[in-house]
Amino acid sequence: MKKSTENSITNKKNVIIVSGLAGSGKTIAIHALEDLGYYCIDNLPAVLLKSFAESVESNNLKATHIALALDSRDPDNPVTFESIYPGLMKSCNLQIIYIKASNDVILRRFRETRRQHPLSVLHPLSSLQDIIKIDESTLEPIKNLAHRSLDTSHMPTQYLKRFIHKHFSISDSNSHFLLNITSFGFKHGTPSDLDTLFDVRCFKNPHYEPHLKDLTGLTQHVKDYVFSDPNVPIFIKKVKDLIEFFYPLYLEEGKHYFSIGIGCTGGKHRSVAIAEELAKIFRESFPLVTVEHRNIEVD
Rank of each mutant, 00 (worst) to 15 (best):
Y38Q: 01
Y85L: 09
E57P: 04
L94I: 03
L33V: 07
A101R: 04
R73Y: 09
V56M: 07
A32E: 00
C92L: 03
F81D: 02
L68P: 03
P86Y: 13
D74G: 02
K62Q: 13
C40E: 05
Q95P: 05
N60D: 13
N103T: 12
A69L: 10
I97E: 03
T80L: 10
D74A: 00
L70S: 05
I41Y: 00
I66T: 07
I84L: 03
A67T: 01
K50P: 06
T80Y: 11
P45D: 10
A46I: 08
D35L: 09
Q95D: 11
T80K: 14
M89K: 15
L68N: 05
G87Y: 11
H65A: 10
Q95E: 11
D76K: 13
Q95W: 07
L70N: 05
A101Q: 06
N59E: 15
E82W: 06
T64P: 07
Y38D: 00
H31P: 02
I99S: 02
E54W: 09
P45N: 11
C92M: 05
D76M: 14
V56E: 04
S72T: 14
L94M: 04
A69C: 11
I97F: 12
S102D: 11
D76E: 15
Q95S: 13
I84D: 01
E82F: 07
Y39Q: 00
T64N: 15
N103G: 12
I66N: 06
N43Y: 11
K26P: 02
N103C: 10
P78S: 08
L36S: 05
P75H: 12
G37V: 01
P78W: 04
D74W: 00
K26T: 15
S72W: 07
A29D: 00
V47R: 12
L36Q: 06
P45L: 10
S24V: 09
S102W: 03
N77V: 15
S58G: 10
Y85D: 07
V56D: 03
Y39D: 00
Y98T: 06
R73D: 11
Q95I: 09
G37Q: 02
L36H: 02
N59I: 06
N103P: 07
V47P: 04
H65Q: 08
L49S: 08
A69S: 12
K26I: 13
N59H: 14
A46K: 06
Y85F: 14
D35H: 12
S58K: 15
Y39C: 00
I28T: 15
D74F: 01
D74M: 01
K62C: 08
H65G: 10
L36G: 06
K26A: 07
D42Y: 02
I96M: 01
S58R: 15
A53F: 02
A29S: 03
E54R: 13
I30S: 03
L88P: 04
T80D: 11
T80G: 10
P75F: 08
P86A: 13
G37D: 04
Y98A: 06
K50L: 11
I84C: 01
A29M: 02
C92N: 04
S51I: 10
F81S: 02
E34K: 12
E82I: 10
S55H: 11
E54A: 14
A101M: 09
S51N: 14
K26E: 03
P75L: 11
H65Y: 14
N93A: 06
K90M: 12
I66W: 07
K90T: 13
V79N: 12
